[in-house]
């Protein structure tokens, strides 16, 4: 598959997998307003995933659809980063994951506004408004939890220990990014500054030198992804070839 297809799938997979994870909160949030907020973010991400899958399907041709791409590829064919497939854990872990990812997505989509592929640029432009809100919402929660009570601070710190090692991969270009000249490494400065600013308000220290996990972007995932896909793909696998 060409690099542009792989890259489009990477963008779609990131959005789908995080959307799927966030949707697990629906009906189970800590308070009704926040249950609605996280469900809304899930809905935005699934919308973004659909736009990217539709574009990838058009590029692939041969009967590919948004659903065949989301429901009929295997673990090793998914190009999402490791961060988005990590389990929800508690509210602190979900929120910190969202903050890391939304701040990355914010700078990435802003960068993609100038991408020569006009379809990708258009989806990035349309999604940027949503992502700006996700970033603001998750930043506020990181501050709230970091600054709130001893317990919330402790939980946020535990979430940081859990998630930090999955952030390095975001800025290491995969083969398809190199081919397309997408300089993800250049986003790291803005991202780090954002993290530092929010962590300062949350009384949280940015971790020092930590070994970074990689592989998700080129199909080497954690064990979590297989289970997530088993659930996500259940209907299409059980009843192949049906309209829904």
């Amino acid at each position: 598959m060409s690099s542009i297809i792989n890259y489009t799938l990477h963008l779609a997979d990131n959005a789908l997998i995080l959307g799927q994870r966030n949707s697990e909160w629906c009906g189970h949030g800590p308070v009704l307003e926040q249950d609605i907020a996280i469900t809304n973010i899930s809905l935005d991400l699934i919308g973004q995933a659909r736009s990217f899958y539709q574009y990838a399907a058009a590029l692939i041709g041969d009967g590919a659809t948004e659903d065949s791409l989301a429901y009929l590829r295997t673990e090793r064919e998914f190009n999402n980063c490791l961060l988005v497939e990590q389990p929800n854990g508690d509210w602190a872990q979900t929120l910190l994951r969202q903050f890391f990812f939304s701040s990355y997505q914010f700078y990435l989509y802003r960068y993609l506004l100038n991408h020569p592929d006009t379809r990708i640029a258009a989806i990035a432009e349309k999604s940027l408004k949503e992502v700006s809100y996700h970033l603001r919402w998750s930043s506020e929660w990181v501050i709230r939890l970091g600054d709130g009570t001893d317990e919330s601070h402790r939980r946020l710190k535990a979430a940081l220990d859990e998630l930090w090692s999955y952030t390095g991969e975001l800025f290491l270009p995969a083969g398809y990014e190199k081919d397309l000249g997408i300089d993800v490494a250049s986003l790291e400065v803005d991202w780090s500054k954002k993290v530092k600013d929010i962590f300062d308000e949350a009384n949280l220290a940015v971790p020092g030198n930590v070994f970074m996990q990689t592989g998700g972007k080129s199909g080497m995932h954690s064990e979590h992804l297989g289970h997530l896909l088993t659930e996500l793909q259940y209907m299409q696998r059980t009843f192949p070839g049906c309209e829904w």
């Binding site: 009906g27 189970h28 509210w91 709230r144 939890l145 600054d147 009570t149 317990e151 919330s152």
Partner: peptide
């Protein structure tokens, strides 16, 4: 369960 597990979150929001 959702309410009990959310208690620390609601407390943190109020404290902040």
């Amino acid at each position: 369960k959702a309410w009990e597990e959310g208690e620390w979150v609601r407390e943190a929001a109020i404290a902040h």
